[in-house]
Design a protein around this nucleic acid. Sequence first.
DNA 1: CCCTCCTTGTGCACTCGCTCACAAGCGCGC
DNA 2: GCGCGCTTGTGAGCGAGTGCACAAGGAGGG
Lengths: 252, 252
Amino acid sequence: MSDRPGRGHSGTPRRIPEATVARLPLYYRALVDIAEHRISTVSSERLAELAGVNAAKVRKDLSYLGSYGTRGVGYDVEFLLHQISRELGLTRDWPVAIVGVGNLGQALANYKGFGARGFRIAALVDADDDKVGREVDGLAIEPIRALPEIVAERQISIGMIATPAHVAQEVADLLVAAGVRSILNFAPAVVAVPDGVSMRKVDLAIELQILSFYQLRKGGPARRRDRAATGAMDVEEGLEQGLDGLHQGMAG
Amino acid sequence: MSDRPGRGHSGTPRRIPEATVARLPLYYRALVDIAEHRISTVSSERLAELAGVNAAKVRKDLSYLGSYGTRGVGYDVEFLLHQISRELGLTRDWPVAIVGVGNLGQALANYKGFGARGFRIAALVDADDDKVGREVDGLAIEPIRALPEIVAERQISIGMIATPAHVAQEVADLLVAAGVRSILNFAPAVVAVPDGVSMRKVDLAIELQILSFYQLRKGGPARRRDRAATGAMDVEEGLEQGLDGLHQGMAG
DNA sequence: CCCTCCTTGTGCACTCGCTCACAAGCGCGC
DNA sequence: GCGCGCTTGTGAGCGAGTGCACAAGGAGGG
Ligand SMILES: NC(=O)c1ccc[n+]([C@@H]2O[C@H](COP(=O)([O-])OP(=O)(O)OC[C@H]3O[C@@H](n4cnc5c(N)ncnc54)[C@H](O)[C@@H]3O)[C@@H](O)[C@H]2O)c1
Ligand SMILES: NC(=O)c1ccc[n+]([C@@H]2O[C@H](COP(=O)([O-])OP(=O)(O)OC[C@H]3O[C@@H](n4cnc5c(N)ncnc54)[C@H](O)[C@@H]3O)[C@@H](O)[C@H]2O)c1
């Protein structure tokens, strides 16, 4: 915050569209790569290429953050990295709790890719007493009934639900009651959360079904091994992914 | 494109919007639940509730499949289930290959939720010779160089990439070369595929960053700044998830 | 000091998806 | 046989997001 270069007359530069927010992490990742190559400036064209989007979109997206580019030159990599990172809150520490330490929960707990962006697994919680006490990657599994204290003491802000689907809503309710305001749900279930709590979901089965839908309309039902199959359904590039699921109740 | 589809005839009535395709799996899941309760008809209202969407949206979505409802009554559960399932290709068998049997790959391989929808893990592939030969859930891990034969012989249609990000593009290329036309990518990397190949991605880190973005503007844990305290950022319900990522090259 | 080159920032037109609201249509009771 | 109530199917209006194309504007060379 502090000094707001560019167009910050008032408090917030402008509202950042949802679609833009979803792309900022892509730019961030691309910029990290660029920075590692000791490159100091980057054009929207190049950034677009690395992020896999359109150059105009990159410029428009970045313009929501402020006028951070230099005409005729491009964007300063370090500076932009800092701005995006601040905007996304990556300069902070985000303690995460994983609820349900089964197959998926363990994989998540073992995953090393979180720390870099400030997301830190701070708690593993399960309802199975046989699992409680066991350690995963140096972190002990704790009983679900301890959730309120855990969330409060460790300032947990994000909860991941990796339990069976039929208890997902119940778990979400517990997380919310404990004070968690952001939830990432991996269970294939519709989970409702009150206003003020964000919920996003990752649903494997849906992704696969979308893929099969389109595959069905490509080479025809009877799979042929030939590649010049000439699908009857010609969808041009640029179709956006997903849109599935709700992002509920962002209010404070 | 040319003629007004009408319906009634056996072909595909009309083009189904991307957003609708992404929701069909939700309806499918809700309908399965309903069918298990021995309920024979369902209204759009009820279905909407169970799928977590708006009733009008349900009706419009289902209308793309054809006029399958009965006014004053609702939709026949079994019939609708069959129609959606046919539309999504769930009546078929979809052999899936997992490339990269590490943390995540193993969790996926052990996951029991695939079979129900026709998705069957038919191959586990890894580049690490130490892993090759080991079994996961009764399926042996095979060397990546055998991919072409594996894909051809087992009629693999979908590939999942669960390797480190820096080899994701390389792996995608191998999958495409082997004949796979649908890819689900879990690696945090931009992966390009040629026309005719569908690519979807699941990116944990992006989801978390989106969550932290909104959490930051809510009146977060360490609250300081912000004039209007809590209510500053009041996003109403119904914000859609994602839009991130491309669905490239659907052409045949 | 001006001119040219290059890239940003954005106005605009267009597409897509969402929601509302209501007429059409079906079944059931009278 | 006829209306009545309920639910579907959809036209229309609206808002969000996208991509084009270009003017605005900084940098560096002459
Ligand atoms: N494994 C995968 O690759 C995968 C892929 C996609 C989706 N999913 C979904 O993720 C979820 C977890 O999958 P999994 O394979 O890890 O299942 P799992 O059965 O291996 O693990 C579930 C864990 O949740 C715990 N649990 C059950 N009820 C609980 C409760 N009320 N509170 C706290 N913990 C509870 C169980 O003790 C268990 O440890 C499922 O909903 C599944 O559909 C998994
Ligand atoms: N583990 C998670 O929970 C998690 C969460 C989000 C994203 N991811 C992403 O999923 C991917 C896999 O994560 P992980 O934790 O399983 O990593 P991992 O290191 O445990 O597993 C990677 C596997 O890929 C194999 N591999 C490497 N190069 C290969 C190649 N060229 N061809 C075939 N196989 C190859 C390795 O031998 C290893 O078995 C990573 O890109 C990671 O960022 C993982």
